[in-house]
């Protein structure tokens, strides 16, 4: 695991990709920070939260090549023909991308120090937003990693993970569409004489969809409200995607194709 982690992590810094991602992130975070401080207040937690909204772009860029490049260049053969555990390979790659996020976060830590020097407030909300930052990053990276495992093209992988992340971030809107859609469909067909039933079915569908929205669940963290469930949610689904990726790689052992 450390072998793969080391290689992938360093490979971000062997090519310009890692530096560009870091530069982009520090520019964006710096922009947020300066924007606030020039108005005389600094809310680090809202800076972190708005930075998380760039995940949808940053995560696909960081994860797109993780497994697809190995497949395209044939280097994946190393993982199959050496006595290394495939799960370690997947997890090492996941950790590498995650570590890059941790490095990016150093920017925010610098901002925190500046805030403290200016007698601003770094409160429980900042800790909460930081937790959300890393847990959501873990979930998104695992999704990006999975997208990278199902194709041998970086571009396709980036598009797939971008679309999945987009759907997740629009889940609230989608759930509203689903609600009215289901309600009107049932209202017109099965529950013709019971519009309330159709309505409630629509609401249930919307609620079920919303349940999968990690952003919705974690939005209170920035105020300093910690709840265990959203973290469990992000972590467990991150593990599910890592496991799926592992199974995708492991498929070669039995696949007849």
């Amino acid at each position: 695991m450390t072998a793969v982690f080391k290689r992938e992590f360093l490979s971000y810094f062997r090519s310009p990709v890692g530096y560009v991602a870091l530069a982009l992130f520090s520019f964006l975070s710096g922009f947020q920070f300066i924007n606030m401080i020039s108005k005389g207040y600094i809310s680090i937690s809202s800076e972190i939260v708005s930075l998380s909204s760039f995940f949808i772009i940053i995560v696909p860029i960081i994860t797109m090549g993780l497994l697809s490049e190995d497949k395209r260049r044939g280097t994946e053969i190393l993982f199959y023909t050496t006595p290394v555990n495939l799960f370690d390979v997947v997890f090492g790659k996941f950790l590498a991308a995650f570590a890059l996020f941790a490095i990016m976060f150093v920017n925010v830590i610098i901002h925190m120090i500046i805030t403290l020097c200016c007698k601003g407030k770094v409160d429980a909300g900042v800790v909460g937003a930081t937790l959300v930052f890393f847990f959501v990053a873990a979930l998104y990276i695992s999704i990006g990693l999975f997208a990278s495992s199902i194709t041998d093209s970086q571009i396709v992988s980036a598009i797939i993970s971008f679309v999945i992340l987009l759907v997740i971030s629009l889940l609230t809107t989608i759930s509203q569409f689903a609600q009215s859609g289901v309600a009107s469909f049932l209202g017109a067909t099965f529950c013709k004489f019971d519009p309330a039933k159709a309505q409630s079915a629509g609401e249930k569908v919307a609620a079920a969809l919303r349940w999968f929205n990690p952003l919705d669940k974690t939005q209170d963290f920035r105020y300093g409200i910690f709840s265990v469930f959203p973290l469990v949610f992000c972590l467990s689904f991150a593990l599910v995607f890592i496991y799926l990726t592992f199974r995708k790689l492991d498929k070669k052992r039995w696949s007849q194709k």
Binding site: R7, S11, R14, S15, R73, G74, T75, E76, I77, L78, T81, T82, P83
Partner: peptide, 17 residues
């Protein structure tokens, strides 16, 4: 796999290393 060293048709090389 511990007993095997394998050189595939296309050597599995990371060109950036």
């Amino acid at each position: 796999k511990k007993c095997i060293g394998y050189l595939p048709e296309l050597p599995p090389l990371y060109l950036d290393m």
